[in-house]
Amino acid sequence: MNPIIRKLILFVATLWAAVTVNFFIPRLMPGTPGDAALAKLAGNGPINPAQRQAIDATLGVPHGSLVSQYWTYLDNSAHGRFGISYTYFPQTVSSLILHALPWTLVLVGTVTVIAFVVGTLLGVLAAWRRGRAVDTVATVGGTFTSGFPYFWTALLLLFVFAFKLNWFPIKGGYAADVSPNLSLAFVRDAAFHSVLPALTILISGLGGWLLGMRNNMINTLGEDYVTFAEANGLRGRTVALRYAARNALLPNLTAFGMALGLVVGGSLLTEVVFAYPGVGYLLYNAVVNEDFPLMQALFLVITVSVLVANFAVDLLYGLLDPRAR
């Protein structure tokens, strides 16, 4: 079978399975989340039949057979009809997600790329200078910082740079007295607010890339073609970057693809500490308010993004590494 068609079939099957898991989670859980959701929503005023139908389909209030519930759920999910949030009544779940997405995509997306590039370069350096001081500092330091819980890094940065030194704002994605727009002043304000969250994600996330790249690189440096390149008298930098690093990078690309997919889910623990208006903070608010429709929809959106990113990297991998075709 053509490998691309095989991958496509596998992707569609995984997508279907993930969407189905999302359908069954609330139905397998103790209690009836659907009833709780309806009761909370009713507190905001009368529920119209369309809203009720959407909640029933997502959360599994027993009415109709399981098969018909499942079809309604698939239909609603495909069209982005996730019902109404009762934490942010009367906004729809879809509009809430659409408003949170840009914040998360810009912040977490940018930092993920920076962390990957910087971490990978440090990993190359550590492996190339293996056993020297640079390597020990980078490896032990990277191991230590990747053990930092995200929220803990966030709290410490908050305490030092926002609370003690007063250099950066304490919370939020923009100043409280303005509404989001695309003026230069607003963008500058938003960038200013994102410095500490970005630093948090960078500190806690850098180590993983560094360690992964170092291990791949050490293995690649043991290959014959690297020894051959060295024996040919090529400059050290050429051997490290053009010969070894290019090949050592390949296994890390899969992880990078997953990380890019995860961007959509935001950095929940970081966003919570800074009350940053992204997808992670929205999911947290859905969780603490037991806003099940919002929570299920967010989980679905996050999972599907990871799957799509994974699929894209999988296809790309075949182009970059002929051995994997």
């Binding site: 989670i25 103790p30 989340p33 889910g265 929940l268 623990l269 929570m295």
Partner: peptide, 14 residues
């Protein structure tokens, strides 16, 4: 591929 932290949170919430 199912993201771990969101899945953990969703499961724990229920």
């Amino acid at each position: 591929v199912i993201p771990a932290l969101p899945l953990m949170i969703v499961l724990a919430t229920y």
